[in-house]
């Protein structure tokens, strides 16, 4: 349901989210991103949502936890539908959120 890849681009740690984040895989996503962050200490985290099709509140909780832990977070290239979800819960005021 979800494929997660990462790369360092211009000194930033970019995590690519391909698929859906819902209740059934939110914990897996959280663990995977946590381990990627640990392997790349000190780098600014960017979540690339170009291929993120769906996110439920379980997924939003993971994003909020990352924002709290890291102090800053960018989420980029979101589709309009997914962007709307981030906007609805007020995350657009808490972190850098960009539409595709």
């Amino acid at each position: 349901m979800i494929e997660i890849k990462n790369a360092v681009v211009d000194g930033k740690l970019v995590v690519y989210l391909n698929g859906r984040i819902d209740t059934s895989n939110a914990q897996e996503v959280e663990a995977k991103i946590d381990s990627i962050v640990k392997e790349n200490p000190g780098k600014e985290l960017v979540l690339d949502g170009e291929n993120l099709k769906y996110i439920s509140s379980a997924g939003l909780r993971v994003v909020l936890k990352l924002r709290k832990t890291l102090g800053s977070l960018s989420v980029i290239k979101l589709t309009p539908d997914v962007y709307e979800v981030f906007e609805l819960v007020g995350f657009t005021d808490l972190m850098t959120i960009q539409q595709a």
Binding site: S57, K68, V89, G90, L94
Partner: peptide, 24 residues
């Protein structure tokens, strides 16, 4: 409803789900 105007550090992790249902 969760206070969506709070700063990230003060935002609760839970409580978003039902709020989203009500909004959407």
């Amino acid at each position: 409803d969760p206070d969506i105007k709070k700063k990230a550090e003060e935002r609760e992790i839970g409580g978003l789900g039902i709020f989203m249902v009500k909004k959407m």
